[in-house]
């Protein structure tokens, strides 16, 4: 049977491979793929190559595609145009890490309740939780700003970090899907051994859900690293800026009269550096990453 299927398959494939339309299709497909890929990469190449030019090489017609000489030192000089170490510290230590911790802990706890404890009203509340993702953020923008202003939290990271400790609808959904796939026998056995719900979560579910928790943590970290709107609204004080706000200012200063030398290369250098962590995370966690995003569509 298997051999028959196999030979049948190869003969059809061989027969099809001869078909000129099939060859033309393959060629068109690769032209499209390679053309698209080059177009997609162009801005990144332009960013990274411009980062190593000086003003003489940036302002040329035709454009100089390969920087010569390549000023690798630009990355260091650009980083000192503003206090980018401070802005990195703000972004990571004051924002990304605490909000990631809050998001993972609270979302895991809520997802456990929504998936592994049966209680009246659970499914309705979960549906509401999902529905909140449809609410445009603008509806909450003004009242939240007023709440945080009244709490005197403007120019601190509290408006960006504290809400993270109250669960994130998308991550609750992701973790719930994962928790549901863990056999109930495992937690039942633990309950018979006298474990309470909290112990079941910590000792059984969380260790098994490590891959899903990692994806949530990576997403949460990236959300904070990439966030622009949150810091724009709540952080005005320069020493408290995130990287995004500092880069914005760099871009605006460039178009002003009397912009400093090498403004374009420096902006591209900082942009390259800020993109690197995202590239690294993506490179090392590509599969779990793409699976995590695919999950959101499977219910559609």
């Amino acid at each position: 049977m298997a051999a028959e299927a196999l030979t049948g398959d190869t003969t059809t494939r061989r027969r099809r491979a001869i078909h000129p339309a099939e060859i033309a299709g393959t060629i068109v497909r690769y032209i499209l793929l390679i053309g698209l890929a080059l177009t997609f990469l162009l801005p990144f190449y332009w960013m990274a190559s411009s980062a190593m030019k000086d003003d003489n090489q940036v302002f040329t017609v035709p454009p100089r595609w390969i920087p010569n000489p390549a000023y690798v030192g630009n990355f260091l000089s650009a980083w000192q145009v503003q206090d980018f170490n401070l802005f990195t510290f703000n972004t990571v230590v004051k924002y990304a890490i605490p909000s990631t911790i809050g998001t993972v802990l609270s979302s895991a706890l809520v997802a456990y309740s929504f998936s592994r404890i049966r209680w009246p009203g659970r499914d309705l509340l979960f549906a509401i939780c999902l529905a909140t993702m449809m609410i445009p953020f603008q509806v909450r923008l003004v009242p939240l700003f007023i709440i945080f202003k009244d709490l005197d939290w403007i120019n601190t990271y509290l408006p960006l970090v504290v809400p993270a400790f109250f669960g994130n609808a998308f991550f609750i959904f992701m973790l719930r899907q994962f928790f549901r796939s863990i056999p109930t026998e495992l937690s039942e056995a633990a309950v018979i051994d006298g474990a309470n719900e909290f112990q079941v979560l910590v000792r059984i579910i969380l260790p098994l859900a490590r891959p899903a928790l990692t994806v949530v943590a990576l997403f949460a970290f990236m959300d904070a690293w990439n966030d622009y709107l949150g810091p724009l609204i709540y952080i005005n004080n320069e020493p408290e800026w995130t990287l995004a706000l500092a880069i914005q200012r760099m871009g605006r200063a460039m178009t002003e009269v009397g912009a400093s030398a090498n403004a374009y290369p420096y902006l591209m250098a900082v942009s390259t550096i800020v993109t690197m962590p995202i590239l690294l995370i993506f490179f090392f966690a590509q599969r779990s990453f793409i699976e995590g995003i695919s999950l959101s569509g499977l219910k559609g």
């Binding site: 609270s106 706890l109 809520v110 456990y112 309740s113 929504f114 404890i117 049966r118 209680w119 009246p120 659970r122 509340l125 509401i128 939780c129 909140t132 609410i135 509806v139 909450r140 003004v142 009242p143 939240l144 007023i146 709440i147 809400p163 400790f165 109250f166 669960g167 609808a169 609750i172 719900e197 979560l201």
Partner: peptide, 27 residues
């Protein structure tokens, strides 16, 4: 189950009231 269910869901429940229901109404 009801006790633990609500207890474990409470971060979201409280957050839902604080960061969604109240802001929508006050908006």
């Amino acid at each position: 189950d009801l006790f633990y269910g609500v207890l474990f869901a409470s971060p979201w429940l409280i957050g839902f009231v604080l960061w969604t229901v109240y802001p929508i109404i006050s908006s």
